[in-house]
Design a protein around this nucleic acid. Structure first.
Lengths: 213, 213
DNA sequence: ACCTGAACACCGTTCAAGT
DNA sequence: ACCTGAACACCGTTCAAGT
């Protein structure tokens, strides 16, 4: 007898090994030594399987200790969400590609709540705090997806933007700064500056919001 | 006799109609009234077809007039890149999903150059200007992907985060701000605040960079 | 209830064979 | 050169049939 938990565990194993795009229903079944069609007695379809996996994961995200200052609480909460996604970047890809977001459960939404409450405590209106959260969310999602991609394609593509391969072809007349940066791009793009950028964005957003009040 | 231009035009037509994920080599061939295998005489494979389409599109992105101030040049250049992607969001998805970025050609890279040069003119080191660009890029990519997704899934999912469907289930004890925002979330999430967030991020990044110099 | 193989309606891509 | 149908190696999913 097969259980849903066994199916999820097998799927997770395969995803960690080879990435979620390669995951196949038939493959999960083979991993469990059962017929492919048997899976459909425990899971509605492939999308449902991925959603179950993600909600399970989201419910395990640790809730961080919150600092005093509202501005710092926002940063800490967003960083916690980011780190959870970054540790399992395929979840972010699925959330984006299949629109799973928002079905995540109260546990994960608590991080959203902390960001919104921090903005309100800082002096934002509720509308402004939604704007603050969404802006931070865009930044976070973009960082995870771009980095996850460049990490996976490391063999095929050098650095985030494949600039390395084209450095010599930059026209110093038309693209002088790019040409000057040259081979430094690769190492610079590999640096993890998520927290710095997050801080800059939070400070920029809060300054903006309180200036217009 | 089939030409590569005809193939690209047909593919573009089909993508605009039904989205790039649904695009099929066999479908493009059918649209042109030729055998599916014929396509492989004009295009290496499906990935190559998509790449050709994107580079063609990227070379048509208009170069905006640049304002005087370095800070404003950064914003204008980034906004132009964003708007080009936003008008054809599937390009951003392909760039992310298939790691096409960096193969875009000098025309599109000019926008990157403007951002980097603006940061340097403002007083950033080259390394800092790369950091500034990457942070802005993450924000921009995230915005496009999240919005593109929520627009496509409008029928299935209300708003960016499917909160609407769950508003009544928010526990006011544990998620008070979310519960208070309630039904306002949908309209608020639908607002286009890309430029505001971009401005906040640029100002935050430039303040941060010059503070540490 | 739980499981299964056969089958359906698809994919991208290759390749020998045609003009 | 340019095009083709047949074929290969896959998919997710359904369904009647088994225990």
């Amino acid at each position: 007898m097969t259980s849903r938990a066994e199916i999820l565990a097998a799927a997770r194993r395969l995803i960690d090994e080879q990435g979620w795009e390669k995951l196949t229903i038939r493959q999960v079944a083979a991993e469990l030594g059962i017929g492919a069609t048997t899976l459909y007695h425990h899971v509605r379809n492939k999308e449902d399987l991925l959603l179950l996996l993600i909600t399970e994961y989201a419910n395990q995200i640790p809730h961080p200790e919150l600092p005093e200052q509202p501005r710092d609480r926002i940063i800490v909460a967003m960083k916690a969400g980011h780190d959870a996604f970054a540790a399992w970047p395929w979840a972010a890809e699925v959330v984006i590609v299949d629109g799973f977001i928002g079905r995540l459960g109260d546990h994960a939404l608590w991080l959203v709540e902390v960001v919104l409450a921090g903005a309100v405590d800082y002096g934002c209106t509720p509308a402004q705090s939604v704007y603050v959260f969404r802006s931070l969310w865009y930044y976070t999602v973009g960082e995870i997806l771009v980095r996850a991609r460049s990490k996976r394609d490391q063999a095929a593509i050098q650095g985030d933007f494949d600039f390395d391969a084209r450095l010599s072809s930059f026209d110093p007349e038309r693209l002088p700064v790019l040409a000057a940066i040259g081979a430094q791009w690769g190492p610079l793009a590999a640096e993890d500056n998520f927290l710095n950028g997050l801080t800059a964005l939070v400070d920029g957003l809060l300054a903006q919001a309180t200036a217009t009040n």
